[in-house]
């Protein structure tokens, strides 16, 4: 592998970082992944097809991917607002709100699931209130969505914060002095700069959401074809000592999220290229 533009080679460290990265990725990532693929490939193609096309597996994958995408989308918007407020405004309690962002990372997912089901159950603070309007959150698909909002939020905020802090203030000031409205400033000056970070954060939140098990399982209800997520099906297969089928579903789910991640990656590259063109005419 050689850097594509020779100009970039002025920056040192290509060889070292490439070998460290590839070595580590091979041992820590590709090796376990190979074990997974090896186990899945014990089954013939004819055996695999009925597993992944069974109604239940498809329903669960659709639910997992759909809920994760929706949650990532909502977090992309509201998470951006949060990151913006945290980096740009000063207000009482800002530090506390900032510190709170890491909570979903540190709190074990099972604890989060328990806390969420306590909050959103029909007796919980929020659940009791929504049940007045006939809306149940815990033990429905809505519960899965809420759990994934929680799990995904830090990815957005933490990816955006450093970029927002770095973003060129001078350009914004220029735009504002020239009479741009705050919205125009955000839309034409800030957003192009932070778009790659938003997409990265959303992609990570999405990926995490697809595989999430611990927090969802407590709040989902787990009814087949209604609120049963794909990772639960994997566990179910394992309980039947059917390792091969479990790995097949795992690989299937993984490939679906990989394809989506690659698309996100492409989008991010494009948004960056667009931005570069704009900034350096």
């Amino acid at each position: 592998m050689v850097p594509r533009h020779s100009r970039k080679q002025i920056v040192p460290g290509f060889g070292v970082t490439l070998s460290v990265t590839l070595f580590y990725v091979s041992i820590m990532l590709l090796l376990p992944l190979a074990a997974l693929l090896a186990r899945a490939s014990e089954l013939s193609f004819a055996q695999i097809v009925p597993i992944v096309t069974s109604e239940r597996v498809l329903a669960a994958c659709k639910l997992s991917l759909g809920a994760a995408a929706l949650a990532a989308g909502v977090n992309a918007i509201l998470g951006t607002v949060l990151a913006w407020v945290l980096t740009r405004y000063d207000f009482i309690g800002r530090r506390w709100l900032d510190a709170l962002i890491d909570l979903p990372m540190a709190l074990p997912t099972a604890v989060a699931g328990i806390a969420l089901s306590a909050l959103y159950g029909d007796r919980g603070w929020i659940g009791a209130w929504t049940s007045h309007f006939g809306i149940s959150i815990a033990y429905t698909r809505l519960g899965i969505f809420v759990a994934l909002l929680y799990v995904g939020l830090p990815f957005l905020v933490r990816t955006l914060q450093p970029v927002l802090a770095e973003a060129e203030r001078t350009q914004e000031e220029a735009a504002l002095t020239l009479g741009a409205s705050p919205w125009q400033n955000f839309r034409y000056v800030v957003l192009p700069q932070i778009m790659p970070a938003i997409l990265t954060g959303a992609a990570m939140a999405f990926a995490r959401g697809v595989g999430e098990y611990g927090s969802v399982i407590f709040i989902a209800g787990n009814i087949p074809k209604v609120s049963e997520i794909a990772p639960l099906l994997i566990v179910t297969k394992l309980e039947q000592y059917d390792y091969a089928a479990a790995t097949v579903i795992a690989v299937f789910l993984l490939s679906l999220s990989l394809v989506l991640l690659l698309i996100m990656q492409k989008l991010q590259m494009q948004s960056q290229r667009y931005r570069l063109k704009e900034v350096q005419p």
Partner: peptide
């Protein structure tokens, strides 16, 4: 990014 997408259960299984 992949480890994020791998369900923790599967990560252990690997």
């Amino acid at each position: 990014d992949l480890p994020l997408a791998v369900s923790p259960v599967v990560a252990g299984l690997m």
